[in-house]
């Protein structure tokens, strides 16, 4: 119980919230890293997955890349990138590692979503004379949206976790509070950092749950 009250007093101390090593700054870094990498990995993964899914090609790659991503330790990739020449360019090793681990769930889910669109619906759309482009954007994409969004949610949660680990390899973000706490041998700081990270991850997960619940309705409204 003592640890709990120490943690609480660490969290409520104003000095720990401001400044370069303060919680606000670390939270901002974490949010920025997560958002930037989510946008970048969506830009990389979704067009590829949509085209592959539309054409029905490259399925083995798109599905197995997730299994490969799971087997490779995030921490190892972060450290390996840090030791390569890329490591000299500030946040880039972290950003690249984050994108590498966010792309597989996006790719797999979007591809599976595209392939699971009812074939009868696709054939009906073709019979109505839709071009490939119309078919992709007006039929397949809206119907695949729930699974695509699942992929985005998994990627976002993965990004939050990976950005936390980046602190071990010298990156910024909330994880830095934890690693600094370990190095200062301060259990309250370690636990406080962990609580902040856990709450942040759960908020991101919750936010995407909400988006996922309502987005198909907006999309349906938008596409008529």
């Amino acid at each position: 119980m003592n640890t709990l009250s120490d943690t609480w007093s660490w969290l409520t101390s104003a000095a720990h919230w401001s400044g370069e090593n303060g919680i606000w700054n670390r939270l901002g870094q974490h949010l920025w890293l997560t958002a930037l990498c989510l946008v970048l990995s969506c830009l990389i993964a979704l067009p590829v997955a949509l085209v592959l899914g539309h054409l029905g090609k490259g399925g083995t790659l798109a599905v197995n890349i997730s299994n490969v991503g799971r087997a490779v330790p995030t921490f190892a990739v972060l450290v390996l990138l840090l030791l390569t020449p890329i490591g000299k360019y500030g946040e880039w090793p972290t950003i690249i590692a984050l994108i590498l681990f966010a792309v597989p769930p996006l790719l797999t889910n979007a591809y599976v979503g595209m392939r699971e669109v009812d074939r009868d619906v696709v054939r009906a759309a073709r019979g109505m004379g839709m071009t490939g482009r119309q078919l992709l954007f007006r039929v397949e994409l809206p119907l695949a949206l729930p699974l695509i969004l699942t992929g985005v949610r998994i990627a976002a949660v993965q990004l939050v976790a990976t950005a936390t680990l980046a602190a071990l390899a010298g990156g910024g973000g909330l994880g830095r509070i934890i690693t600094a706490g370990f190095n200062l041998a301060s259990t309250p700081q370690v636990v406080a950092g962990a609580i902040l990270v856990a709450v942040f991850a759960l908020v991101v997960e919750g936010l995407f749950e909400v988006v996922q619940r309502f987005a198909p309705q907006w999309a349906r409204g938008g596409f008529g």
Binding site: V157, A161, I195, A198
Partner: peptide, 10 residues
């Protein structure tokens, strides 16, 4: 959902 580093720290 809790990231691994946070889990170990908690």
């Amino acid at each position: 959902t809790i990231p691994s580093l946070a889990m170990f720290s908690l």
